[in-house]
């Protein structure tokens, strides 16, 4: 054994190494940090800042990242996170797991009532979610948390929120004008081309079976197991989820259903599903809703083009 490893050598040597390392990989980046705000940056309001504290206290950061990665580009991401997005964050909440979705651009994806139903119990709006319920926070804190989540994305979120608020008013006006007016409005917000086409897939046994699976994984929380709009989320949502059973004889084509599933109805709790589900799956849900709840199926009817190879 060498006599050179004296207590002084061990203690001073290791502390010196640590100091050098801290200088290079911690202090230097800190000294050189660029605090220029990014193009979407804005400061949080008081309510949003209070919501962020609730987010921290309840450990939301362990399941949700707040950073869209460069490698997500080309895999569905719409904007890559920049250092200038985080210049008011103390602590920064980048997250280390995606047990749940990334939230950095969550603001304005849904209206407030969707979030409130979702915090009461996430399964109310997303049946396959594994997020714990946050009903225990009480309405006051849930509203603050909602304000925070709606601010994620900052200026970009504000733009989406303005859109949500505009269409929220429109949808409430239509709903409160009665069933006839509401159904007319729901059909008229769909472009004419879509309204004219029937569901191009036959309402076969397997199409309906798949439609049923998807309905249970995505729709049942709001529209309920029998499609009457009385799902668990219903008490929290306004305008309330649509009751499909009133639609018979109202010229609801497969194309209208498909378009609404694909694009959602901004302002209402109805989200868009075009990122979650590919085309054929959406048509299958449409067939399921038409066959089981509306009891009026236009699938595979005219006008139709060339038969697909596998179709019956």
């Amino acid at each position: 054994m060498s006599q050179k490893m004296t207590p002084t050598a061990v203690v001073l040597g290791s502390v010196t190494i640590l100091a050098a390392v801290v200088f290079v990989v911690v202090f230097w980046p800190y000294q050189q940090a660029d605090y220029t705000p990014s193009e979407i940056f804005r400061y949080r309001t008081e309510a949003e800042a209070a919501g962020r504290k609730i987010y921290i206290a309840n450990g939301c950061v362990y399941c949700h990242s707040q950073s869209i990665r460069a490698i997500d580009w080309g895999h569905g991401a719409t904007r890559i996170a920049q250092a200038g997005d985080y210049v008011q964050d103390r602590p920064i909440l980048l997250g280390s797991q995606r047990t749940g979705v990334d939230l950095s651009q969550e603001g304005g994806e849904h209206p407030d009532d969707w979030h409130i139903a979702h915090f009461i119990n996430p399964r109310y709006t997303r049946p396959n979610s594994i997020m714990p319920p946050f009903e225990y926070l009480g309405m006051e804190k849930i509203e603050l948390l909602t304000a925070y989540v709606q601010s994620l994305g900052m200026k970009a979120a504000d733009k989406r929120m303005a859109r949500q608020r505009f269409w929220k008013e429109e949808s409430i006006r239509a709903y409160e004008a009665g069933i006839d007016e509401n159904v007319r409005w729901l059909a008229e917000i769909v472009p004419q081309g879509w309204r004219d086409i029937p569901n191009p897939y036959a309402a076969s046994e397997y199409s309906l079976a798949r439609g049923r699976m998807i309905y249970q994984a995505f729709c049942i929380g709001c529209h309920g197991p029998v499609g009457d709009g009385m799902g668990d989320a219903q008490p929290w949502i306004y305008p309330p989820p649509l009751n499909f059973t009133i639609l018979k004889g109202r010229e609801i084509s497969g194309g209208i259903i498909y378009y609404q599933l694909m694009n959602g109805i901004t302002g209402t709790a109805m989200p868009y599903f075009k990122k979650d589900l590919e085309s054929e799956k959406l048509w299958d849900v449409g067939n399921y809703i038409a066959a089981y709840f509306i009891n009026e199926v236009d699938s595979n009817g005219p006008p139709r083009g060339i038969d697909a190879a596998y179709e019956p």
């Binding site: 990989v25 911690v26 800190y30 940090a33 985080y86 008011q88 964050d89 103390r90 602590p91 920064i92």
Partner: peptide, 16 residues
């Protein structure tokens, strides 16, 4: 009060 730095340097220190 916060036990944190501001922005990106906070993440660098944290993971250090």
């Amino acid at each position: 009060d916060t036990g944190a730095l501001l922005g990106i340097p906070d993440a660098i220190l944290l993971w250090f």
